[in-house]
Amino acid sequence: MSIADLTSRTADTTVTLLPALAERWSPRSFDGSTIDETKLTAALEAARWSPSAANTQPWRFIVARRGTAAFDAVVANLMGFNQAWAGAASALIVAITEDVDAEGAERRWASYDVGQAVAHLSVQAHHDGLHVHQMGGFVADGLREAFGIDERFTPVSVTALGTVGDPDALPEPLRSREIAPRTRVPLDDIILVNE
């Protein structure tokens, strides 16, 4: 499969979706290029303008560009196969929830809200020709220590951002996963009630 084939893997949807949603997928093969700062800023701006409960905006981000000490610190705290491929991304973004506000009040919906923020980021990035791969395999306490993250904040995910690269550069079984057909369970299987 060529890089061109990888960048145009439109989902087989039951109805027509916005192109940025239907075409979005999560590669592991990145080309290691320098991030386009305008596109990175647009993705972060999309996250900033995502909805949140009571407009609390309980998200924070660590933005680590390839070639920086911050990037290396994030890579060092990735787990398993994530370390094998994520270092080729142009940027790694740690999404963090503010679980408790400055006055000590719980922000119960913070993880939901940060998920929406990262979803908005990923759609904007794809619209601008970048790709995103979100990861849960990381050492949260290691990131907390590396970046001095206060205890009222929690690292939730790490997002690799960049331009798709050659899948042949990936070790197996990651290469096979990269070129495998995209699949999802049927829509009827995820809807519990539809009256």
Rank of each mutant, 00 (worst) to 15 (best):
A47P: 12
A47C: 12
A47F: 04
W49H: 04
W49Y: 14
S52D: 02
A54R: 14
A54T: 07
T56V: 01
T56E: 11
Q57M: 04
P58G: 04
W59H: 12
F61M: 11
F61P: 11
F61W: 09
V63S: 04
V63H: 09
V63N: 07
R65N: 09
R65F: 06
T68M: 06
T68H: 08
T68W: 12
T68R: 06
A70M: 04
D72A: 13
A73S: 15
V75G: 01
V75K: 07
A76P: 12
N77C: 13
N77D: 14
M79C: 07
G80Y: 00
F81T: 05
F81E: 08
F81A: 10
A84F: 04
A86T: 01
A86M: 04
A86F: 05
A86G: 08
G87T: 00
A89K: 00
S90K: 02
A91K: 01
L92G: 01
L92W: 03
L92K: 07
I93L: 08
V94D: 00
V94A: 01
I96G: 09
E98N: 04
E98W: 00
D99L: 10
V100K: 09
V100T: 15
D101R: 07
A102C: 00
A102M: 02
E103G: 06
E103T: 13
E103R: 11
G104Y: 02
A105T: 13
A105W: 08
W109C: 05
Y112F: 13
Y112H: 09
V114E: 10
V114C: 09
V118M: 15
A119W: 06
H120W: 08
L121D: 10
L121R: 09
S122D: 02
S122T: 15
Q124D: 04
A125N: 09
A125L: 07
A125C: 08
H126V: 02
H126Q: 10
D128I: 06
D128G: 03
D128E: 14
D128V: 05
G129N: 08
L130K: 09
L130C: 11
H131F: 15
H131R: 15
H131Q: 14
V132A: 02
V132M: 04
V132I: 13
Q134L: 08
Q134I: 07
Q134G: 02
M135I: 04
G136D: 01
G137R: 05
F138K: 13
F138H: 13
V139N: 15
A140V: 05
D141H: 03
D141V: 01
G142L: 10
L143D: 11
L143Y: 12
L143K: 08
R144P: 07
E145K: 14
E145S: 14
E145L: 06
F147G: 09
G148R: 05
G148E: 10
G148H: 07
I149N: 08
D150T: 11
D150Y: 01
R152Q: 03
F153R: 08
P155G: 03
P155A: 05
P155W: 07
P155V: 00
V156H: 11
V156F: 11
V156R: 14
V156N: 13
S157R: 12
S157N: 15
S157L: 15
S157W: 03
V158S: 14
V158L: 12
T159H: 08
T159L: 15
G162D: 09
G162H: 02
G162C: 06
T163C: 09
V164A: 14
G165W: 06
P167I: 03
